[in-house]
Design a protein around this nucleic acid. Structure first.
Lengths: 336, 336
DNA sequence: ATGAAAGCGCTAACAT
DNA sequence: ATGTTAGCGCTTTCAT
């Protein structure tokens, strides 16, 4: 059933149908009602495809994610989807698997499909990426970044205040009485992790604690890294009393590795994670952590994107969230 | 840049460009090369929107999921996306939040957008659902179900053999020497859970073990259920030695609750989960579980959908996976 | 208050 | 071997 069929049924031209369905003021209420009733009765709905070709806009956005299996992306996806659906937009899910070639293929696809905007999480900063981002923006297709932005491209970014989060995490442990706090993180190259580390360093400095460089351990989020970190910590002549990991996965891996070796959490080591993944509450002890509001970040990113889509010249914006410490069982106060 | 622009540049008609780009045999290699080179040089790519309108097909599929936060859906999404991308299809992500109204809205959207097919996981079986499914199939838009299908609608279904999985899980524990095995599961109404339970019962029967009905505990996947289950088990005058939970989440919740109460796993209780979620390896003890191949299920669902899309009259198919027992640290052999 | 007609970018049947 | 043309389903300008 097309607009022509409906026009015939209603005994009007398709122009009138179109105007009526789009609530154009020129069509009197009576005619409008007759047409919409007929449309409902016959289950007529205008083709989005035809609309898109005609209007040059698709009410579709692309969501580029490095790997949906990584447990902080589902929350982002959910938040983006929620706001998109409320605004009658669909989200095209692009999982590029941290693979540059696949990333480029998706960029091309999004271009071919005339998406109205793009949300991009997990940018690596490669040359191809830069090229595509520029190209989209030149064509007036806005891009919002989550977590990390493109170098030299400030704005249209949704993230938490990582420096502040690192500062508060360390301060929290210090206030609990800890003086030797290991910092276990991912690759030093990732800017958000560097900021967390800077915050951690600053907190120690502000409390006149010396930073023991051997307690700063940087690897990745694999369990091998966690095991290595545990070994390094247990090897120290004078051990730390607390561990701040910049990922719940690492924190949990270390916790279980310590338990396996007969150490108790939090009696022997307090552990503080990062992200507040759902699993943190179903382990023993439950994990204290720094919460990232993933779903809300997804929502805000989509809101921002909508604003940019609807108002092309809208100001670049940066949305900054404060991370929140969630205290559970894996951390405890000590008296030194 | 449109096909007309390119045609002008190449000094041919747009028909020739179209044929060349679509590798039609009638265009000689020389002309074709000239045209594709020109296209590459100018970054020309045909509009998918225009193609869709013309051909009536979109190379887009809808993936309906009840809630992406639930940790077994990311794997499915990933598998679907992987095969879709390989075949130049995009996936429209529809998270209906276990909400019938939102589900209907998405069905309408998918219809308006002329998707070529739908993959549906987490069907509830409501009346609206039935209606939409029939409508799509009548219009020749195939639907593949994951996990559960529609009642009285067999085929186009990808799932694990739940009966067999229940049977093998119980047998595994029995072979380990356990004689009293609690079965902790979700709502009795869900058919896949009922099948797992039937398999469990059959395994006990085959080994001449009596089923203790008080050890069959059905709730949901909340931690409240897990706590209640633990209490019930600890209250028994003669306690079970093993627990088979039909979800890793429940298994992990029970494990941590037991640990909190001073019980040891696996010394006091062996615990077997279900799903093989990524977290099962970063808890202590690591969780033995029945693995569901989520990613592979997603892949197969998409493969099946592609077959149906390409060959409308293709036979309805049912893809059945065998679940696999993954032995880790939470289960142990006992000598009664 | 409503209709006619052009056109969005492409494909495919039919011509030449 | 290549071109002409109609048309996919809609919106929008311009007429009436």
């Amino acid at each position: 059933m097309t607009i022509d069929d409906l026009a015939r049924l209603a005994g009007v031209s398709k122009a009138t149908v179109s105007l009526a369905l789009n609530k154009d003021g020129r069509i009197p209420e009576a005619t409008r009602k007759r047409i919409t009733d007929l449309a409902d009765a016959h289950g007529y709905r205008p083709s989005t495809v035809a609309k898109s070709l005609r209007k040059g806009t698709t009410k579709a956005i692309g969501l580029m994610l490095p790997d949906i299996i990584n447990p902080f992306f589902p929350g982002i996806l959910k938040g983006v989807e929620e706001v998109a659906a409320q605004n009658d937009f669909i989200v095209i899910f692009c999982n590029f698997d941290e693979n540059e070639a696949k990333e480029s293929v998706y960029f091309e696809m999004l271009k071919d499909r005339w998406v109205d905007g793009i949300i991009f999480s997990g940018i690596t900063g490669g040359a191809e990426e830069q090229k595509y981002v520029r190209a989209f923006e030149e064509k007036g297709v806005p891009i919002v970044f989550i977590d990390r932005g493109l170098e030299g491209h400030d704005g249209n970014l949704v993230q938490i205040d990582n420096y502040d989060a690192g500062y508060r995490a360390a301060t929290y442990l210090i206030d609990l009485g800890h003086r030797r706090i290991a910092f276990v993180s991912g690759p030093e190259g990732i800017s958000i992790l560097r900021k967390r580390k800077d915050g951690y360093r600053k907190a120690l400095a502000d409390h006149r604690l010396e930073v023991d460089e051997s307690l700063i351990i940087e690897g990745d989020i694999s369990s091998a890294t966690a095991v290595a970190a545990v070994e390094r910590i247990l090897d120290r002549p004078v051990k730390p009393t607390a561990i701040f990991a910049t990922s719940d996965i690492v924190a949990l891996s270390m916790q279980s590795e310590l338990q396996k070796r007969g150490c108790r959490v939090p009696e022997d080591f307090s552990i503080l994670g990062f992200d507040n993944l759902p699993i943190t509450v179903i382990v023993h002890p439950t994990l204290s952590t720094v919460a990232q509001p993933f779903v809300e970040m997804g929502r805000q990113a989509m809101e921002l994107l909508l604003a940019l889509i609807q108002n092309k010249d809208s100001q670049r914006r940066k949305v900054l969230f404060n991370a929140e410490i969630i205290e559970r069982e894996s951390t405890r106060a000590i008296t030194s």
